[in-house]
Design a protein around this nucleic acid. Structure first.
Lengths: 78, 78
DNA sequence: TCCATACTTGACATTTTTGACAAGTCAAGA
DNA sequence: TCTTGACTTGTCAAAAATGTCAAGTATGGA
């Protein structure tokens, strides 16, 4: 799996989790610890950025899920 | 959990996985797809840097574990 | 049609990761 | 002691994430 595919999958997973909670990007950004903008949510969900683990951790916290839940992705065998 | 604690935990987990496989930092760096230096392994294992998800993914691949296995950390309740 | 909401996209400055190299520490063994 | 291997730490440039704002698109409702 290449970088862009990984980022798309992670982003899609975050989008799914956010929609499960019925949150808008604005709601999510507001729940995230520290400064966070809907711009970043959009960029991450659409796979246009390669977030750091701390950024993902803050997102996981705001979504009330574990960090590993965001990583539970069906990784195509290479 | 604050940022530095998260990074220390993730780093420790990678160190554990690497030692389970009896790899040196040099071995690991060499197995990682694309360019990777032992400097980076050291910085990540010691929690001095906040790696991107793609970097962690490449490390997971080199360690033959799933990305989520690196994230399976006992998260202290806040 | 107009408006509001939700989201995307572009631009920008700041900060940080990444990749590379050199030098330093530290421990084990000849 | 000297050397080797493993790892750490500092510096540096290049690339990229982050944070912020503004503008654009799209949809649905009044």
């Amino acid at each position: 799996m290449d970088k862009s595919e990984l980022l798309r999958i992670i982003g899609k997973r975050i989008l799914e989790l956010r929609e499960e909670k019925n949150l808008t990007q604005l709601d999510l950004a507001a729940k995230i610890e520290g400064d966070f903008d809907t711009t970043n949510v959009s960029r991450i969900e659409s796979g246009r950025t390669n977030p750091t683990i701390f950024t993902l951790y803050r997102i996981a916290q705001a979504l009330d899920v574990k960090l590993e839940d965001i990583m539970k992705i069906e990784i195509p065998e290479d």
